[in-house]
Design a protein around this nucleic acid. Structure first.
Length: 398
DNA sequence: TTTAGGG
DNA sequence: CCCTAAA
C-alpha cells in the first residue's frame, strides 16, 4: 500500500505526537518538554476554526481496492503556486493572473496493484469531494493572511508594484465535513498493521525520505503549522511557494507507510467543546488604545525595558486587565510594529510619532542596559536617542 | 513574584 | 495572549 501525498511538499510524513491534546494546564506541564516537536496541536483550533478535516472515500475498482484513507487539510495549506506579477491599468484597477493553485494536502492510499487509471480517478474523486464540500479563498500579503475583508486593496498594499510580489491566495476546505466514523479521540491510535507492511516498500523515486517510515507508525501526518491566536493563525503560511514555481510535480513524496486505523485518523473536533469549560478561559482580547500606548511609551522611556513591574505601577495601576507581562508583550509588539511597513500593521493605527519614540527608547535601553535605579532620566534618553546611530536605520529594517 | 523570551 | 524557565 502506498500513501501518496499530493501536497506537493516533501516534508516527512510523520504523525504528530498526539492528535488530541487540549489546552488543559495539567496536560501542559507534562508535555512542555516536547513542545519543540509538536506545539499547538491541530485540535486546539476550536474557536470557530477548523484544522483537520478527514474525508473517507471507499470504492472498489477493477478488483483492486482503492480507498482514500484520508484527506487532510490543516487550513493553512493550499497556496497559489506561481502567480504572475499583476499589471496595473490606467484606471485604479489591479489585474491579477493566478497561474495555478496548489491543492490542500491530500493523502491517498491505493493498492500497488491498482492501475494508474484508477489512481487518477481516485485523485479526481478526492479533489472533487473537497471542492464539493465548499472551499474558501484566502488572501495573503507577505505570507500573512489578510483577514480584514473590508479593507481596500490599496489599504492592504495590494496595489503597489512592490507588494504585489508578496501577494498570495489560499484555498481552504470548508470547515464543515464530518464523515462516517464519529469523531473520537484515541489517546493512542491503535495501529492496525500487519507486519507485511512494516516492510518499507518505498518508492524508487523517493530516495531521501528515509527514517520517515518508522515514525509514520506513531506519528500523524505532519500538518503545516497552525496558530492558536485568533488573529494570527495560519500566518506562517507558505510564502516560499508563492514565489517559487518549481514545486509542481512533487508527487514524489510517495512513501510507503502502513495503513493506519481509519478511526484513529478520523479524530479531531467536537468532543473538545466539552472539556472547554474546564479549561481556564483565555482572556478576551483587549487591543491597546492609542492613549495606552502613549502611556506605555512614556513609562518605558523613563524606566527602561526591564522593569515592567514598575511600568505597571506607574502607568497602569488601575488597569487591572493589564499585567506587567501584558505591558512587556505590548512593548514587544510595538517594537515590531514600528519596524514593519504601515501596510502590514493592523488594528487601530498607532501614531508614527509614538512608534518613533518606541524605536528610540528601544535603541536607548538596549545599550544602556540595566542602568541605574534612578527613575528620572527621560532627558538623557532624548538626547542620546538623537545621536544614537541605530535610531535612524532602525525604521528601515524589515 | 518578576524577568525575559519563545510560542 | 499564553506558558515557563530562571532569577
Amino acid at each position: 500500500m502506498y500513501l501518496i501525498s499530493l501536497d506537493g511538499g516533501l516534508r516527512p510524513l510523520h504523525r504528530k505526537r498526539k492528535t488530541c491534546y487540549n489546552r488543559e494546564r495539567h496536560h501542559r506541564d507534562v508535555l512542555y518538554k516536547r513542545r519543540k516537536f509538536y506545539d499547538r496541536s491541530s485540535v486546539e483550533t476550536f474557536d470557530g476554526r477548523f484544522s483537520c478535516e478527514r474525508l473517507l472515500i471507499h470504492r472498489k475498482k477493477a478488483g483492486a481496492e482503492i480507498r482514500v484513507v484520508q484527506v487532510q487539510s490543516n487550513g493553512a495549506t493550499s497556496l497559489v503556486k506561481g502567480h504572475h506579477a499583476s499589471l496595473r491599468s490606467k484606471d485604479s484597477n489591479v489585474k491579477f493572473s493566478i497561474k495555478s493553485f496548489k491543492v490542500p494536502e491530500i493523502f491517498i492510499e491505493v493498492s500497488e496493484t491498482a492501475t494508474v487509471g484508477s489512481l487518477k480517478r481516485t485523485v479526481m474523486d478526492t479533489v472533487t469531494a473537497i471542492l464539493g464540500g465548499g472551499i474558501r479563498v484566502g488572501v495573503l500579503m507577505h505570507g500573512k493572511k489578510v483577514r480584514d475583508g473590508n479593507r481596500t486593496l490599496s489599504q492592504t498594499g495590494i496595489s503597489s508594484e512592490d507588494n504585489l510580489d508578496t501577494l498570495g491566495f489560499t484555498l481552504e476546505p470548508h470547515p464543515v465535513q464530518a464523515p462516517s466514523p464519529p469523531p473520537v479521540c484515541p489517546e493512542d491510535p491503535p495501529l492496525v498493521l500487519p507486519d507485511a507492511l512494516q516492510i518499507v516498500a518505498r518508492s524508487p523515486e523517493t530516495p531521501a525520505l528515509d527514517s520517515v517510515c518508522p515514525n509514520a507508525l506513531t506519528d500523524p501526518p505532519s500538518p503545516t503549522k497552525t496558530e492558536t491566536h485568533e488573529e494570527s493563525n495560519h500566518e506562517q503560511a507558505i510564502h516560499a511557494d508563492v514565489l517559487t514555481d518549481t514545486t509542481l510535480p512533487d508527487s514524489r513524496a510517495l512513501v510507503a507507510v502502513p495503513a493506519m486505523n481509519v478511526e484513529a485518523l478520523a479524530v479531531v473536533p467536537l468532543n473538545q467543546k466539552s472539556r472547554r469549560s474546564e479549561m481556564a478561559q483565555r482572556r478576551t482580547r483587549r487591543p491597546f488604545s492609542v492613549s495606552e500606548v502613549e502611556a506605555l511609551v512614556r513609562a518605558v522611556e523613563e524606566l527602561g525595558t526591564g522593569r515592567w513591574r514598575d511600568v505597571k505601577l506607574r502607568s497602569f495601576e488601575d488597569a487591572d486587565h493589564r499585567t506587567y507581562v501584558d505591558l512587556k508583550d505590548k512593548w514587544k509588539t510595538l517594537v515590531h510594529t514600528a519596524r514593519i511597513s504601515p501596510q502590514q500593521r493592523r488594528g487601530e493605527p498607532v501614531p508614527q510619532e509614538l512608534l518613533d519614540r518606541v524605536l528610540a527608547a528601544h535603541a536607548y535601553w538596549s545599550h544602556h542596559q540595566a542602568k541605574q535605579q534612578g527613575k528620572h532620566q527621560a532627558g538623557a534618553l532624548k538626547i542620546e536617542a538623537l545621536t544614537d546611530p541605530n535610531g535612524a536605520t532602525a525604521s528601515n529594517q524589515l
